Amino acid sequence: MEKKNMGFLPNREKLVKELTPQVKEDLKNYFQDRDYGVIAITREDALRAFVVKATNLCEIARLRHKLSPMATAVLGRALIGAILLTSLLKHGTDQRVLLRIEGDGPIGLVVAEANAKGEVRGFVQNPNVPTFVKEESGKKKFDIGKAVGKGTLTVVKDLGFGTPYESSVPLVSGEIAQDIAYYLLKSEQIPSAVAIGVLVGETGKVEAAGGFLAQPLPGASEEAIEKLEENVKSLPPVSTLIKEGKRPEDIAELLFKGFTTELLALKELSFRCKCSKELARGGLIAMPEEELEKLIEEGQASVKCNFCGEEYVFTKEELQEIMEEKRKGNN
């Protein structure tokens, strides 16, 4: 399938297309190993799902922030969670959602921000948090809840209409996916099934990552909701599915087993930050003069972006120019 027919680049047009074998082959050829998500619905009833593959962007986050395996798993889940919450936004716009997890666990503050175009960024307060493991069904896995601890999940939606909408709920597990489902139920009154997985290999590299958000739409029948619940319960971990080669559209079909799956929209995903040296310069201009003087005496200044780890270095000459600009603005 040619790029102009994919319906999401560059205009990200919506589409409704039955998920036939040919469409699946076209998606595989087009996206290949890139991260992306599909928004799918059922033809027979009012069910909806947003399924994403996010292996590459989670690995980029790991490398940018020099994360430990535990921190990789936590931030990866938060990034995917923020992406899933963009399903509440207008597709393809600059509207954005920020997910903030404030727990008393050793990882500290966790922040992830995603926009409706599929761009996401984020950070954790403690990138070197040690690994915590728990056993579940005879298998060892990361104890995300222990790393995060107890606290609150806050979701901030910026719809571009002035003051952003903010809502907080208590963390019910610290596992992030369950906490997002609880948020959707309590703050948005939307019952949802949320699953997120980040598989970290022995070397620390992200081997597979993704997630889904599935929910009934208004008018969904009880039978359809029960069938969706059964399908969700029967699925293995989403990171396992992606590791095995399943793609977002394949997982959507598994979620909608017993229904005809149709694609509503596609979205390419990427780890991307809007920081720049100009923005960092603005932060320096806002500093008190005495602090700028100290930096000039030291000979240079370095400003690091929390969200992506990018570092901007300012020479003594640049700092002196900033000081002159600041003094002119104060006169």
Rank of each mutant, 00 (worst) to 15 (best):
A49E: 04
R121L: 12
A40V: 04
V111N: 01
A116F: 05
G299E: 04
Y312H: 12
S87I: 06
L217G: 07
V16E: 11
F256H: 04
L185K: 11
Q22N: 07
K205F: 13
D179R: 03
G204M: 02
T261C: 04
F256L: 04
K24N: 10
E262A: 15
K277Q: 06
G151N: 01
A181N: 10
R96N: 12
Y30C: 09
G201S: 11
A280V: 07
T42E: 08
I39R: 12
I242F: 06
K326N: 02
P69K: 01
D143C: 03
L75E: 03
E317S: 11
L263A: 11
L88S: 00
K274W: 13
H91C: 07
N306L: 15
I144C: 03
I107F: 05
D94M: 14
K304Q: 09
S239I: 05
G201Y: 04
L47D: 00
L57G: 08
G211F: 12
D143M: 11
A280Q: 12
F142I: 03
E166G: 11
E223D: 12
K3V: 13
F314Y: 04
M70L: 09
L15I: 14
V111D: 06
E268T: 08
T163G: 13
Q189F: 06
L99Y: 02
N306E: 15
A209T: 10
E289Q: 15
G201H: 03
E229T: 13
K257V: 05
M287F: 05
R64M: 02
V313T: 12
G149D: 08
N331G: 14
Y183F: 01
V23W: 09
H91I: 01
K146F: 04
V200E: 03
N11K: 13
K274V: 12
T72Y: 03
N231I: 00
Q95Y: 02
R64G: 12
F142W: 13
G145I: 08
R121C: 00
K134Y: 08
K150H: 06
R247N: 14
V16D: 12
G174Q: 02
V198F: 01
I60G: 10
E229W: 11
C308T: 10
L9T: 07
Y312P: 02
P127K: 08
V313C: 10
E230N: 15
L199M: 08
Q178H: 14
L284N: 02
A214G: 02
P69F: 02
S168K: 15
I225N: 14
K24F: 07
A220K: 10
S68N: 00
S221E: 11
R62Y: 13
A224S: 07
